[in-house]
Design a protein around this nucleic acid. Structure first.
Lengths: 130, 130
DNA sequence: CCGTATCCTAAAAGATACTG
DNA sequence: CAGTATCTTTTAGGATACGG
């Protein structure tokens, strides 16, 4: 970013960002974070529920993303039970909720494009047996 | 994405996306595409102008991103001159312009966070020399 | 001026098996 | 149920040199 002819940047928690877009992408970039945040927009979900809603994310990736989102303060984790099987819920923090309008803009644009220029298809052989 | 208990997906130009967010991220994901699109929001810019505005992108990466944005129909390339030095301008297409409100949402969120929780710093020794 | 070509590293993501 | 651990593949990104 250039301000009055000088190169400037933002520093947040010792990370350097060269423009506002990069800041946001640092929080929601990658393949899965937006997806997870979007699924949490209506309330807490369990690990297994997120897995079912997003069947193409592996357990490992979901775990990594949730940890990262928690570390960034976007998501909170609550665990119930003394021993397995545990019940673990994830929900947006108030900070995380501030991202929902942003992700809604992303999602709406994608759905509009898919509606106009794409088509909806079945996956996982859900045609069979139906 | 799950519709009536069945897994569905979008297909756009033979690419498969499992939710609306993923569609948009396919177009603007990565480190640089949003940045480039954002700089083009007010009109055409030359390759070298984009380089100056975004000094941390290498020529190779800028070239790759512009090619990709052009292929996706978000950006148009216009070249003037018979032989070197050429003048090459990049501008948003009308399709690309539909992304500007989305990227504005991203950018505004990042700037708001930087303003509240971060600080602006000088880079490249621009302090030296006054 | 506007890029390509080549080589390289690092980060992201995926497959699979396993555990308290 | 809610994850870890390990290994492998894929993709993104960067450094540098060169070309029309």
């Amino acid at each position: 970013m250039i301000v009055n002819g000088e190169h400037k940047a933002y520093r947040i928690n010792d990370k350097i960002y060269h423009c506002g877009t990069s800041v946001t992408m640092g929080f929601i970039g990658g393949k899965w974070k937006c997806v997870v945040l979007w699924y949490l927009r209506n309330g807490a979900l369990r690990f297994s529920e997120l897995r079912r809603l997003s069947p193409y994310i592996t357990e490992k990736m979901l775990s990594i993303q949730l940890k990262s989102l928690e570390k960034d303060g976007l998501v909170a984790r609550t665990s119930y039970g003394e021993k397995a099987p545990f019940r673990v819920y994830y929900n947006l923090t108030s900070f995380g909720e501030t991202l929902i309008p942003v992700i809604k803009a992303l999602t709406d644009w994608g759905i509009a494009l898919a509606t106009n220029k794409g088509e909806m298809i079945d996956v996982d052989g859900s045609e069979a047996g139906g």
